[in-house]
Design a protein around this nucleic acid. Structure first.
Lengths: 223, 223
DNA sequence: CGGGATATTGATTGATTTCAATGTGAGTGG
DNA sequence: CCACTCACATTGAAATCAATCAATATCCCG
């Protein structure tokens, strides 16, 4: 196949970016593995940002609270996702394990000093942060302008994309987590999932399992 | 050329000179000045990200659209703010001038190659992106969990902080822009401003001018 | 001074929240 | 193995906040 031939002729590593994901490599090489039980705090808003994190297993939520307890989850981190990449030296939101989770930690000062020496790491750090910003923008559109049905559809399609399993989604989080991510109540999340099931867009074998039955319908809700 | 001069003057890695804002300096030194008329497009979502931008004068909005025209403004950029710092090579949202605006542009490839050479630039690029992410998180809390009054209060307090003028805010944007930023309608924005005026929290000498009369009330709405 | 865009105000509707009750399922101990 | 329990989820009815529909009102700007 032509593609394979092309690959064989590729320039030597030195000419290209030798290590495609040097930050990931750094985590693999020197990251400390740590376990967090379901619902336990990984760090809190306002604490000094001492480490950078990468999810190995399980899921993590990052969120902000209002004084009266209202919560907005900004993102869910799944295996392979980084979090806590703060520019300042204080965490700007809190992080908790959604399910039992394994996380890799690397001391922030080590990452930044490596980034100063290795432009590849600096670039990856920036790219990762920028892609987080992009996802945040996308989620603002969801929170500011979409209906409950559209929010749920966006959430399900995104989860399906991130878990590689084509149609069956295993949700690591509760209805309350979903509600606090989508700016809804648990009742609305529940009702909307039921509606989508009644309209044959999805199937709910159990409360934590969702089968996407009609992607066209779901994608239309995402336009 | 500037890039070479900078490289020539740089101290060896051991000497950690703290150039305070090397990216800003780069914009000042080599940025192309460009004017944009009110409501004109600076770039569109999906276009190749060829430049990085910094507002000199006026205001800029970055936003995303749904296919039916619903709009979510992710942020307003005021003088001194950067925008378009994309990690990928495509713009992920659109940018327009809110008012007549002067903007500095620097070619993205120049910034990234400078960042590869100069860790200070790379660090600033990352820090700026991270602070954008932080503001996005904060705004998700507004969009997902706050009432109309709280959204308006958050907006006014933020604008007051960004314009240095203590109490009098000059709004560069229309009610529609504010509505699309806060996830409300123009009617709700208008009514809520009137309510806040009636409760003596603010004063509205004209539709584009707001005087913060009672910060305590406004700050309480932000808790 | 006129006219179109922008903003305010009013009346009503409607989507989502709130309040309330019931259902379900996983883990525990008898 | 089953009953029990507690957390979580679903469903129903009513209330509410903001959206929509509809008139003015006001402000620029030529």
């Amino acid at each position: 196949m032509l593609a394979q031939e092309t690959a064989a002729h590729r320039a030597p590593p030195a000419a290209r970016e030798a290590t495609e994901a040097p930050l990931s490599a750094l985590f693999t090489a020197v990251g400390a593995r740590m376990q967090f039980a379901r619902n336990s705090e990984i760090y809190g808003e306002g604490e000094p940002a001492e480490y950078f994190y990468k999810v190995v297993k399980g899921a993590v939520r990052t969120y902000k609270l209002l004084s009266d307890g209202r919560r907005q989850i900004g993102a869910f981190q799944l295996p392979g996702d980084f979090f806590g990449l703060e520019g300042g030296d204080e965490h700007r939101f809190s992080a908790e394990a959604v399910s039992d989770a394994t996380v890799l930690l690397v001391r922030r000062s080590l990452v930044t000093s490596e980034a100063d020496r290795d432009a590849g790491i600096a670039r990856e750090l920036w790219r990762l942060t920028a892609s987080g910003l992009d996802r945040a923008h996308e989620h603002m559109l969801v929170l500011g302008r979409k209906t409950a049905q559209e929010r749920i559809a966006a959430f399900l399609v995104d989860m399906a994309r991130r878990e590689k399993t084509a149609a069956l989604i295993e949700l690591p989080m509760s209805r309350l987590d979903i509600a606090d991510y989508l700016g809804l109540t648990i009742e609305t999340v529940s009702r909307t999932l039921t509606q989508l099931e009644n309209s044959a867009a999805i199937e709910l074998p159990s409360s934590r399992r969702v089968v996407l039955r009609n992607r066209v319908t779901l994608d239309r809700l995402n336009a």
